[in-house]
Design a protein around this nucleic acid. Structure first.
Lengths: 204, 204
DNA sequence: AGTTAATAAATGACTGGTTAGTCATTAAAG
DNA sequence: CTTTAATGACTAACCAGTCATTTATTAACT
């Protein structure tokens, strides 16, 4: 019972996914060795193939697993809210920024940007399941503000991308340039909220 | 003089870079075969190595070549300008959006996001040469508006990233999700400008 | 102008290393 | 004693980078 061959059918897939996330985040898809994934998971490569059909299937499973986790939590935060809409948007932006940057989501999104075009059906899935959910979340906040008469109804509801863009870019910045020029995330998100809410023009 | 072995020392590097851009954009760094790059350029792999030391050097040369081309042109557009600042910002955003999406820059930026973390000195170069130039461009427009008393001075000058974020996300969207849900770039950029300039809140 | 010699560009076969995926075998569990 | 998780050695393919050889271009010399 000591050194090897311990059978743990139910725990394996999760462990493999965790290891895969770490390795993919480090090296990208093509440059990741399944031997390394296996090693990190404390097993051998053969075992990986007991649970996943191929390297690509592993990548796919990874994205599908991580997707949507955060949405549920943010949704929960919004559920009971009845206060002013500007505070709500501030909350949303803060949550988006913090979650994008803190979690492993960050690496997965970088991976998706990188490898997405080579896996069109993966993009389709992500668009259908994840993006659409994010859009609904943003629309919900915007509609709330418009109905309360706080937000004006410029075309923004049609382009929720404009709201995510800021947090998204912060995430990319942290992934790429943080070591050369760190970003003060707090101040950044505050300025972002302020600009989106009140605009740049002097009030007349 | 017919089939092969034609010597064209001066034209080669450019041709190789063009071919490399196409292949890298298609497959990413690791999955691109130098044989394919050579074939696309109408030569053989050996010839590639006459002009570039390694695959990595080729990638690097590619990024360095394309960088900055667009800045000069945008700078030129701004140079003589004396009109209202909001129109200037609109112009800047439109230019950024259109150039990011139309040109091959788009693929290169995706590549940089994807492979950047594995080539830290490449990121350093890009940060020093390209990003900083973009920042200066944006600062220039913001300062112009603030000096004219048109723009209020919230912290935006410290976070020019907020201005690029919108065009940048449009570029990513087009690269990834355009086939599932195309983005009306004109309307998007208009809405973006409007939101940044006037904000979302109802004027009181 | 024509022949030849020197030079430089380009080739393509080759190698050494790497790695996704397989499968016969081993060993734990019930 | 049967079942099945896990192993690890193996293979088949792939590809970055090399280099001896081939071919074009230019120079040099009649």
């Amino acid at each position: 019972m000591s050194k090897s061959h311990r059978r743990r059918k139910d725990a394996r897939p999760g462990e493999i996914l965790d290891a895969a996330l770490a390795e993919f985040a480090l090296n990208g898809f093509a440059a990741t060795r399944l031997d390394d994934v296996a090693k990190r998971a404390g097993i051998t490569k053969g075992t990986v193939y007991l649970y996943f059909d191929s390297k690509e299937a592993l990548f796919r499973a990874l994205l599908e697993q991580e997707s949507g986790r955060n949405f549920a939590e943010i949704d929960g935060l919004l559920d009971g809210y009845t206060g002013p809409a500007d505070k709500l948007l501030q909350l949303l932006i803060r949550q988006a920024g913090v979650r994008l940057i803190a979690s492993d989501l960050r690496h997965l999104i970088r991976l998706l940007i990188a490898e997405g075009p080579r896996f069109p059906d993966l993009l389709a899935f992500h668009h259908a399941e994840v993006i659409s959910r994010g859009r609904r979340l943003i629309e919900r906040v915007l509609r709330y503000g418009i109905e309360r008469g706080e937000f004006r109804d410029n075309g923004l509801v049609k382009f929720p991308q404009i709201i995510v863009a800021g947090p998204m870019l912060a995430m990319l910045w942290q992934s790429l340039f943080a070591e050369f020029e760190p970003l003060d995330l707090e101040a950044y998100l505050d300025t972002l909220s302020d600009t989106l809410l009140h605009g740049m023009m002097v009030r007349k």
